[in-house]
Design a protein around this nucleic acid. Structure first.
Length: 287
DNA sequence: AGCTACTCCTGGTAGC
DNA sequence: TGCTACCAGGAGTAGC
C-alpha cells in the first residue's frame, strides 16, 4: 500500500516528465475517483493548464497548475490502497484499472489507475484545506526527538493508532509503523504517554531510518499492486523485519513473530523484542 | 479525548 | 471447475 516512501518514489519518477507540460485532454473512466464527482469542473480546469510543480505532502501528491485565463489551481491526490501513477504513450490500449487519464503534449498520457477504487483526485484553489491538517513531515527538520517526546507525553492513546493518525505525523501507514515500532522495541499497544524517553528517542531515529531506507529501495511491493511509475517492484519488502513475517523467526532474537490486531489493523510484533505493556499500561486492544 | 464499528472496493484465496 | 464467503486495508464518519 502506498505510504510515504512509495508516494515519494512515484513523485520523483513522474516529476521530470510532467513539469512544464500542458494538459491537452482529460478522460475520467470512473467518476468516483474525483472528489465530489465533479468531472466537468475538473476537465474544464485541467485542460489547457500547465503543470508547474509536482510535489508530495505526507501520502498526498500535488500538481501545481497554471491556466492562462483561469489562473492557479492544484490537483491534490491520494493513492490509498492500490492507486498508481505512470506515464505511457497515447497509442497504448488503456489499462483496465485506469480511472483517470491526463493527456499531455508529445503523445504521452499520465494514468491514474486504482484496482480497489479508494484513491481520489481533488481539484482545488486552496490545497491547504486538505493538507493543512497534516502533522509534520518525518523527514524534515521539524520532526525532532524533542518534538516527538513532547507530543507523545501529551497523548493518552495507543502508540500505533497514534502513529497512523495523519494529523499527528504525516506519511506512516501500516507497514512502516510496524517496522519503526519494532526497531524502537516498543509494543504497538503501549500508551503514547507511557513510552520511555529512551524509547521515544529510538522511535524518532527508527521512523527516519525506515522511511529513508525504503525510499532508497523505491518502496515495498508487498502485494501485487504497487509498482513504481517506471514499472519496477519496490525492493524494501526484502528488508522488512516484522511486517508480513508472521510465524517466522525474529531477525534479532529468533522468537516467532506474532500477528495481533490493533485498531482493526493487522499488526506484527516480536513478543520478546517488544514486550507487552503491563496491565494498566495499555488500553483496550488484545494482545 | 479516544475507542469501536462501519463504509468505500476488488482480487485473491479458502472451503466445499 | 465453479461457486460462495471472507479478508485486507487508509481514511472518513458516526456513535458511545
Amino acid at each position: 500500500m502506498p505510504e510515504l516512501p512509495e508516494v515519494e518514489t512515484t513523485v520523483r519518477q513522474i516529476r521530470p516528465l510532467l513539469v512544464g507540460q500542458r494538459i491537452g485532454d482529460v478522460r475520467v473512466r470512473w467518476a468516483g475517483s474525483i472528489v465530489g464527482r465533479q468531472v466537468a469542473g475538473l476537465r474544464r480546469a485541467l485542460i489547457g493548464s500547465r503543470i508547474e510543480r509536482v510535489w508530495r505532502r505526507g501520502k498526498f501528491f500535488v500538481f501545481d497548475l497554471c491556466h492562462e485565463l483561469r489562473g492557479r489551481s492544484y490537483l491534490v491526490g491520494h493513492l490509498r490502497m492500490s492507486g498508481r501513477l505512470w506515464i505511457e504513450s497515447e497509442g497504448r490500449p488503456h489499462d483496465r484499472h485506469a480511472r483517470v487519464e491526463i493527456v499531455l503534449e508529445g503523445d504521452q498520457r499520465l494514468v491514474f489507475a486504482d484496482v480497489r477504487k479508494f484513491g481520489r483526485l481533488c481539484l482545488t484553489q486552496r490545497p491547504n484545506e486538505i493538507l493543512g491538517c497534516l502533522g509534520p513531515e518525518p523527514l524534515t527538520p521539524d520532526f525532532t526527538r524533542a518534538w516527538l517526546a513532547r507530543a507523545l507525553s501529551n497523548r493518552r492513546r495507543q502508540i500505533k493508532p497514534l502513529l497512523l493518525d495523519q494529523t499527528f505525523l504525516a506519511g506512516l501507514g501500516n507497514i512502516y509503523t510496524d517496522e519503526a515500532l519494532f526497531r524502537a522495541r516498543i509494543h504497538p499497544l503501549r500508551l503514547a504517554h507511557d513510552v520511555a524517553p529512551a524509547a521515544s528517542q529510538r522511535l524518532t531515529k527508527s521512523i527516519r531510518q525506515v522511511l529513508a531506507a525504503a525510499i532508497r529501495r523505491e518502496g515495498s511491493s508487498f502485494d501485487s499492486y504497487y509498482r513504481t511509475p517506471e514499472g519496477r517492484s519496490g525492493r524494501y519488502q526484502e528488508r522488512l523485519l516484522v511486517y508480513g513475517r508472521t510465524g517466522q523467526p525474529c531477525r534479532r532474537c529468533g522468537t516467532t513473530i506474532q500477528r495481533i490486531v490493533v485498531a482493526q489493523r493487522g499488526t506484527h510484533v516480536c513478543p520478546r523484542c517488544q514486550p507487552t505493556p503491563p496491565a494498566g499500561r495499555c488500553a483496550g486492544g488484545r494482545g
